[in-house]
Simulated scan of single mutants.
Amino acid sequence: MTAAKLPAECQSKDDVRVEIDRIDQALLTLFAERHGYVTRMAEIKTDPHEAFDPVRIEAVITKVRRLSLELDLDEDQAELIWRTLISWNINYEKGIIAARKRAR
C-alpha cells in the first residue's frame, strides 16, 4: 500500500481519486463507529420522543460550525451534512425505541 499523498502532491485526476477513495473509506468507518453509539443510545432511551432533543441538536450544530471554521471548511455545508445525519439518526432511534415498546 502506498503512502497517502497531500493534495499538492497529486499529479493527475487518478491520484486525486485514489486519495478521495481512501478518505471515503475512513469516513465510512467512522460513520459505522458512530452508528454503533447511536444504536446504543436508542437502547438506553425509553420513549421515542427522547430521540428528538432540540437543545442537544443545536449544541452539536454550534460545535460543528465552530470546528468547521477552525478547519477552514464551509460551515454552512457542514451544518447541512450534520442536520441530515441527525435527522436520519432521530428516525432510526425512534424506530428502535418504538419497536422495543411494541415487543413488550
Rank of each mutant, 00 (worst) to 15 (best):
R34V: 00
R34W: 13
L85V: 08
P48T: 01
I23D: 09
I96C: 02
K13S: 01
E93Y: 02
S68W: 04
I86M: 06
T29L: 09
A4P: 13
L67T: 02
E70T: 02
L27F: 08
E93K: 15
A78F: 05
A26L: 12
T46M: 10
A103R: 13
K94N: 00
Q11R: 15
D24M: 10
I44Y: 12
A78P: 07
R100I: 07
T84R: 15
E75I: 02
Y37A: 05
I81G: 02
L6Y: 04
K63N: 06
R65L: 00
A8E: 13
T46D: 14
I97F: 05
I61A: 03
I61N: 06
W88S: 12
D24V: 12
R102A: 13
R65W: 00
D53L: 10
Q77S: 11
D72V: 01
Y37W: 09
Q77W: 04
A26C: 00
A99R: 12
H49G: 15
D76Y: 08
L69F: 03
V16Y: 03
Q25M: 03
P54R: 01
I90N: 05
M1N: 10
G36Y: 02
L69Q: 14
L80T: 14
R22P: 13
V60G: 03
D15Q: 04
A8G: 01
Y37D: 05
A78G: 01
F31E: 11
A4L: 10
E43C: 06
Y37K: 06
I57M: 11
T62H: 14
R102C: 12
H49R: 15
E9S: 08
E93N: 04
R17I: 03
T62A: 13
R34G: 01
D74P: 03
I96E: 01
I20D: 03
D72K: 01
V18K: 10
S87K: 09
D53P: 11
T2S: 14
L28F: 04
Y92H: 13
L69K: 10
S12N: 05
V55N: 14
E43Y: 06
S12V: 01
C10N: 07
W88N: 14
